[in-house]
Nucleic acid binder design. Structure first.
Length: 743
DNA sequence: TCTCTCACTTC
DNA sequence: TGAAGTGAGAG
């Protein structure tokens, strides 16, 4: 074989390959077979199943594939491949047998979430990122044991308000600030089989929340404004950026896909748990929340009133000082203070030092607004007067027959399947209003791109969606909820695509990708052969474009990137198999600046962008905040918008062949209608209001209101306390004086 | 409101 | 043992 990288593909040799292997795939493969080190991909090693991403049918392709498969199976670098490389039979790519699944998701630690939610959950965000507490954990069931799934979560704005904590309650303080770039967090174990996911609790505790917009843990891919299909940014990272004093709603997604690259054209099943809603804060506002965190978060043990934590030590120190003083006092006066007064002093001190708990029995989230500030007061008063019944219905996350869903489903259906691109915002608003209180957890929405043609989408798609909704309704699950499945017209969304002329808020125009969610990948993802198997190979051409054209990466070539990745502790293989954007992500997390690709990757990144936008932009509540979509002004609460998934799912053996043609019509510029459709909200509105419940067993200890007896003790205690304070501050030398100074 | 440091914790 | 996750508290 005497091929070179620049040899054309022999006529008649068809190629069916992964979308990330566009026209340069032949070069790439041939280079590998010939033992050339592809200049654009210096240290590529195919992961064990990487060959699955390549299929080169035809007389020429077979030997190429043989070698690729051989390399893949042995894990040897492409660079070591030569003509003499060991050949293995071409691995056949058998289409996976699709077994119907019916995923159900159960929120773990629901009771804990409920406790927080009743009081208005706050999540601290810091510059360096803070974890969520309670941690977001779910248990999955109903998955196809053998199929592979990717599990993700993201956090979307729950409404369009900014909040303030005033008079022990959260109140609307105005319109929301411009939204931060969105991200999705892919569970680091993804992809894994359904069996694996179901065998354990899926936890997202490593996701961090930050208010640092220049967060380097995220990596942003920028698309040129004139890109045919996608514009804006798309980022990867381990932290999600939130606005302080804004309300957010985590979402959980199940995607049946064995490769992250397939995300864009796979079905997303989305699960919402209203009780996981929270307000992002830089410092805790509500003492009750602080106390709940302290009481439940192991890392905060040091602040607990009991145990050996700091608080206890402080008390012990205080008591010790008191004893010292007491002994001196005894010596000097010949009398002794009763231990009760010591205890009273302690109580007093404890009361003063422990988080004050307002006895105002109203909590917070119930005050959380509907999107309209002006209606907030009304909503507030309503909720205040009848919170109990409301609450009971609200928090029933584990039943599948929530009234809310029943209410919400028709709205979702109607909204999703009846609305035309034109006039979408209005439709959305109306529909949302039609189901103003459909907010009963968890809402599950599935947006699919599978096999729905343009025609199919209109009515058959609708029926499918409706059928699924009905199906979901009928689910008898107790601890899990059947998905409220909405089949969206993903292909249409792709065709419509993102909005070229979106009016982003000033300063965000260059950062936000279609107001979309960037893809958010866990670093450990890099070490996974599976998820990025085909991506690894697929990124070759991209890298070629980058370093070859040397216009896309500033100051770094792919070699440097690979080295950097390796230097990060990644194994040679995993580092080498890092997809380009992930390498960038790694670098980005190191603070290395990467410049946007620009239009260098018109094709593959269309997919990437599709992944981001499809999976989140259209689904994000941010959509409703979009000026073009301005749903927010009409809707009390938009909690969810369906994903728009770009491409019909082709057979895995001919992904590109199938995807490419379908992509072609989709690559046209989008208009406002398209945008509106893409952002069509499913209107799974969930009542954010949580009854204000003043009872807090945890807090009651620190919110003691003094009884008369206690009050009398309080005086003595105050005196003692003052003495102690003097003692501690070095004034104990004059006990008589300090005593006389006490009341 | 936000940021930083601190002492404490878990892992 | 040390890295990383906590809220408190000062600024």
């Amino acid at each position: 074989m005497s091929l070179s990288m620049r040899d054309p593909v022999i006529p008649g040799t068809s190629m069916a390959y992964h979308p990330f292997l566009p026209h340069r795939a032949p070069d790439f493969a041939m280079s590998a077979v010939l033992g050339h080190q592809p200049s654009f991909f210096p240290a590529l090693t195919l992961p064990p199943n990487g060959a699955a991403a390549l299929s080169l049918p035809g007389a020429l392709a077979k030997p190429i594939m043989d070698q690729l498969v051989g390399a893949a199976e042995t894990g040897i670098p492409f660079s070591s491949l030569g003509p003499q490389a060991h050949l293995r039979p071409l691995k056949t790519m058998e289409p996976e047998e699709e077994v119907e699944d019916d995923p159900k998701v159960h929120l773990e630690a629901k009771e804990l979430w409920d406790q927080f939610h009743k009081r208005g959950t706050e999540m601290v965000i810091t510059k360096s990122g803070r974890r969520m507490f309670p941690p977001f954990k779910v248990r999955c069931s109903g998955l196809d044991k053998k199929a592979k799934y990717i599990l993700l979560m993201d956090i979307i704005a729950a409404d369009d308000c900014r909040y303030k904590f005033h008079n022990s309650r959260w109140m609307v303080a105005g319109k929301a600030d411009p939204e931060m770039p969105k991200r999705m967090y892919i569970h680091p174990d993804s992809p894994a089989t359904g069996e694996q996911w179901m065998s354990k609790v899926v936890t997202f505790h490593k996701l961090k929340l930050t208010n640092n917009i220049s967060d380097k843990h995220g990596f942003t891919l920028a698309f040129p404004s004139d890109h045919a299909t996608w514009q804006g940014n798309y980022s990867l990272g381990t932290q999600t950026i939130l606005n302080s004093m804004h309300k957010y709603q985590p979402r959980f997604h199940i995607v049946r896909a064995n490769d992250i690259l397939k995300l864009p054209y796979s079905t997303f099943r989305t699960y919402l748990f209203p009780e996981t809603e929270f307000i992002a804060v830089t410092a805790y506002q509500n003492d009750k929340i602080t106390q709940l965190k302290i009481d439940n978060n192991p890392f905060a043990k040091g602040f607990r009133d009991t145990g050996n934590g700091r608080r206890e030590k402080r008390k012990q120190l205080t008591l010790q000082s008191m004893r010292v003083f007491d002994e001196r006092h005894k010596k000097e006066t010949g009398t002794s203070d009763e231990s009760s007064s010591e205890q009273a002093a302690f109580n007093c001190f404890a009361q003063a030092s422990s988080p004050a708990v307002s006895t105002v029995g109203t909590s917070n989230l119930k005050d959380l607004c509907p999107s309209e500030v002006e209606s907030d007061a009304e909503a507030e008063s309503k909720e205040e007067h009848g919170p109990e019944a409301c609450d009971a219905a609200k928090i029933s996350t584990t039943t599948s027959e929530e009234p809310g869903r029943d209410k919400g489903s028709p709205a979702v259906k109607a909204h999703l399947f009846s609305a035309e691109p034109v006039g979408r915002p209005r439709d959305s608003a109306r529909l949302d209003k039609a189901s103003p209180d459909s907010r009963h957890s968890p809402a599950t929405i599935s947006s699919s791109t599978r096999g729905l043609g343009a025609e199919e989408r209109r009515s058959p798609g609708r029926e499918v969606g409706a059928a699924k909704v009905e199906e979901a309704r009928a689910l008898p699950a107790k601890d899990a909820f059947g998905p409220l499945t909405v089949q969206t017209d993903a292909a249409a969304h792709l065709a419509q695509g993102p909005l070229p002329g979106l009016g982003f808020a000033p300063g965000l125009a260059g950062q936000q990708f279609f107001n979309g969610h960037p893809l958010f990948l866990h670093p450990s993802q890099f070490a996974m052969g599976g998820a990025f198997s085909s991506m690894a190979a697929g990124m070759g051409p991209l890298l070629a474009t980058v370093s070859g054209a040397s216009t896309g990466v500033s100051g770094l070539d792919s070699t440097a990137m690979a080295s950097a990745a390796a230097a990060q502790g990644l194994s040679g293989a995993s580092a080498a198999t890092l997809p380009f954007h992930l390498q960038q992500h790694v670098l980005a997390s190191q603070g290395l600046a990467m410049s946007p690709f620009g239009s260098l990757f018109p094709y593959p990144y269309t997919y990437m962008a599709a992944a981001a936008a499809a999976s989140s932009a259209a689904a994000s509540s941010s959509v409703h905040r979009h000026p073009f979509l301005s749903l927010n002004s009409m809707r009390p609460r938009l909690r969810y918008s369906p994903y728009s998934i770009p491409v019909p799912v082709p057979d895995s053996s001919s992904l590109l062949a199938t995807a490419l043609p379908s992509m072609a019509p989709a690559s046209g510029p989008l208009d406002g209608k398209a945008a509106a459709l893409a952002g069509s909200p499913a209107s799974v509105t969930v009542d954010s209001g949580s009854e204000l419940n003043s009872r807090s067993s945890t807090l009651s200890s620190s919110s003691v209101s003094l009884s008369p007896k206690l009050c009398s003790e309080k005086e003595a205690a105050t005196s003692e306390l003052q003495n102690i304070q003097r003692l501690v501050s070095g004034l104990e030398a004059k006990p008589d004086r300090s005593r006389s100074g006490s009341p």
